[in-house]
Amino acid sequence: MNQTIVQFYPDATKSLIALTNALLISAAARTKKPFYLALSGGETARSLFEIWKNQYNDPKRWKNVHFFWVDERCVSSENEESNYHWAEKLFFKPVGINPNHIYRIQGEDIPYREAERYSRLVAEMLPDSNGVPQFDCTLLGIGEDEHIASIFNNDTDLLKSDDLYAVSRHPATGQRRITQTGEVILASREILIALVGERKKELLHRLVARKDQTITPATYILSHTSRATIFTEIELNSKELSFQ
């Protein structure tokens, strides 16, 4: 049985600061080597980038960090739905992150070709762990429908795919996305998950209270790793989530 550590803080901002401190401690321990970080998108990521811009804006803190993406919507980088767009606007430009350390998914290109290109890039740059490229840290959120990265309940085959990145489709909008697959997520040295805000309260309590064996992308990932930590302001009775 795998257990996921849950760290509680007084509010959402303090939760995201704690996650950032954990990330930077890991990065500082590898100052003589590149630190490969996979970023997620969404509202929580935007809040995180704002904190980085305002409180962690010395570029020296980030000098050995190389930024990749967990997933991306198949839109241009100028589109406000782009995960890269917000990272660039809220963090990379204001802080002065080295452009040579930023590796975006080109969402405007043909999705399947871009998934293949990005897979090759990641495989070439990252160290190998049992045949899978290994990120030093992966930042994740969990959707209210329990999707993780851009792996939805209609795409659960991507949890065990041999591809490194693949094309998924949002079940409600039909929007195509490029996403890490489950094996790449699970290979990461460290997985940091932010679950903050009122809308995530029911989700987190549902994950804790679940008695059935329903497999969703979130429960699959959490049940197959011992490297994940959840940062939240949502009170629970336990500081660990257990998954079989």
Score class of each variant (00 low, 15 high):
Ser161Tyr: 08
Ile105Val: 12
Leu186Arg: 07
Ser242Trp: 11
Lys63Glu: 14
Gln55Glu: 15
Ile105Arg: 00
Trp69Arg: 01
Ile230Gly: 05
Leu186Trp: 02
Ala115Met: 14
Gln55Leu: 12
Asn2Thr: 11
Phe49Asn: 01
Ile142Ala: 00
Ile148Trp: 00
Trp62Lys: 05
Gln213Val: 14
Ala218Asn: 03
Glu190Met: 12
Val196Glu: 00
Ser238Gly: 01
Phe49Trp: 04
Glu240Ser: 13
Asp163Asn: 13
Lys200Gly: 05
Arg120Pro: 01
Tyr36Gly: 04
Ala218Asp: 01
Gly96Leu: 08
Glu80Val: 13
Ala123Tyr: 10
Thr229Asp: 02
Ala149Met: 10
Phe68Leu: 02
Leu158His: 06
Pro171Thr: 13
Ile142His: 01
Glu114Ser: 12
Ile193Ala: 00
Thr219Ala: 00
Glu114Ile: 14
Asp128Lys: 14
Lys14Ile: 08
Tyr9Thr: 12
Asn237Trp: 07
Ser242Gly: 07
Leu203Ser: 00
Ile185Pro: 04
Cys137Ile: 04
Tyr112Asp: 15
Thr181Pro: 10
Leu121Thr: 08
His224Tyr: 06
Asn79Arg: 04
Ile102Met: 11
Ser119Asn: 14
Ile148Met: 08
Leu158Ser: 04
Ile110Tyr: 13
Val184Ser: 08
Leu39Glu: 01
Asp162Val: 11
Ile215Pro: 00
Thr173Asn: 11
Lys200Ala: 08
Asn21Thr: 09
Ser77Ala: 15
Gly107Cys: 11
Glu233Asp: 09
Asn130Trp: 06
Gly107Lys: 03
Leu204His: 09
Leu126Asp: 03
Ile215Gln: 04
Ser82Val: 04
Ala115Cys: 13
Val65Tyr: 04
Asp157Gly: 12
Ile178Thr: 10
Thr232Phe: 09
Asp58Phe: 06
Asn100Met: 07
Val184Lys: 09
Thr216Ser: 03
Thr229Asn: 02
Arg117Trp: 13
Trp86Pro: 05
Glu80Lys: 13
Ser15Pro: 02
Gly131Asn: 11
Asn154Cys: 14
Ala187Phe: 09
Arg199Lys: 15
Leu24Gln: 03
Lys32Arg: 15
Thr4Lys: 03
Asn57Gln: 07
Asn98Ser: 08
Gln213Tyr: 11
Ile105Ser: 04
Gly174Pro: 06
Gln3Glu: 13
Leu186Asn: 06
Glu114Thr: 13
Gly174His: 08
Lys160Ser: 12
Pro59Cys: 07
Ile193Thr: 02
Leu126Ala: 03
Thr44Asp: 00
Phe243Ile: 07
